[in-house]
């Protein structure tokens, strides 16, 4: 798992690291174990209580439903690992879908529109990152501001309309084919796998990734060890912006229609997935596998509870309880580690 090389978080102001981890701490620090257990339990319960949950078609459906929120959550993970938070991620993505769709309607080639959208989302990430690193503003406030600005910008840009996109490059990720003639897959799943593996590799196998964890763990200590913390933080926001652009592409694959009012709770849903996935809101602990599992847990809950005929409001209750449990576990782990 991703967290093996990260050390438990030291208390504030204490820059000394604890000695080698005990087996218990290592087990507890394995942040993907919790969401994995939750996922397995959910799958068992829904398989036992409904006739329609445990089959290959529904598995495909769950993965399709996971794609957009899972991709948003991957970008969110990068930022939360640095002890930040991104309230604007869904707004960045929605603006991306609007710009891509509008440009392609205005007779730009779809591929060019897509590239413009990707550059735009990445640039917005760079703006947030610059505000966080240069002006030393809290990420919470920066992204709250960006959320507000982008939501309004999207509405003004769309002027009450929603834009449908033509089939082709823009809807490519939603196109289906069949593995072994039976298992329904979309190209979006392939892109998601590349993204997941790529981000996992960057975070765990490169010095950049180690710097990200170090900055999230204790920014001052990271700076003292010679890490360029500003550049690391900025790169995290830029990369997250790029990931949100991929989410925009995934979203157009799911529904070939860009609507300024879509994904209004996407930011909270992605934070929910990351937190259930065991990534610490205090930074420095967690990672990609946990987030993938966390997003799957959220998707499976909605999917399974709907099929079990349980009121959507109880689905929100269940998700909320999981979030609180996840944060509580994180808290306990931190205390023990300290």
């Amino acid at each position: 798992m991703t967290t093996t090389q990260t050390s438990p978080v030291a208390p504030e102001g204490d820059t000394t690291r604890p000695p080698a981890k005990t087996a218990v701490a290592r087990a507890l620090g394995n942040t993907a174990a919790g969401p994995l257990a939750a996922l397995v339990i959910a799958v068992i319960v829904f398989s036992a209580t409904t006739d329609t949950f445990f089959n290959i078609d529904n598995a495909s459906l769950i993965v399709e439903q996971f794609l957009v929120i899972g991709t948003l959550a991957l970008g969110q993970t990068l930022i939360i690992l640095t002890a930040g938070i991104d309230l604007a991620n869904a707004a960045i993505m929605v603006l991306g879908t609007l710009v891509i769709a509008k440009l392609s309607q205005d007779a730009l080639p779809a591929g060019v529109a897509l590239i413009v959208g990707i550059l735009l989302c990445t640039a917005i990430g760079a703006v947030s990152g610059t505000l966080v690193t240069r002006l030393r503003l809290p990420p919470f406030i920066v992204t709250l501001g960006v959320l507000s600005v982008l939501t309004a910008t999207g509405q003004l840009f769309a002027n009450g309309e929603s834009f449908s996109v033509p089939s082709g490059v823009l809807t490519f990720l939603g196109e289906r084919s069949y593995l072994f003639g039976r298992i329904e897959v979309t190209y979006g799943m392939g892109v998601a796998i590349i993204l997941i593996v790529g981000l996992w590799f960057l975070l765990t196998q490169t010095s950049w990734g180690r710097n990200v964890y170090a900055v999230g763990d204790d920014e001052e200590a990271a700076r003292l060890t010679g890490i360029n913390t500003r550049r690391t933080l900025l790169s995290v926001y830029v990369l997250a912006g790029f990931v949100y652009a991929i989410a925009a592409w995934q979203a157009l694959g799911r529904i070939p229609n860009a609507d300024p009012n879509a994904f209004q709770t996407g930011n909270l849903d992605s934070i929910t997935a990351v937190v259930i996935g065991g990534t610490s809101l205090f930074g420095g602990r967690g990672g990609v596998p946990g987030t993938v599992l966390g997003a799957l847990v959220v998707t499976v809950l909605t999917n399974g509870l709907t099929q079990a005929g349980i009121d959507s409001l109880y689905q929100q209750v269940a998700t909320g309880i999981l979030v609180i449990v996840a944060v509580a576990v994180d808290r306990v782990v931190r205390r023990r580690a300290a």
Binding site: I85, L87, F140, Q264, T265, N267, L268, D269, I271, T272, V275, L281, Q316, T319, G320, V323
Partner: peptide, 9 residues
């Protein structure tokens, strides 16, 4: 937008 799931938010 009014539905809030995460305390922080």
């Amino acid at each position: 937008r009014a539905s809030v799931r995460v305390p922080v938010v």
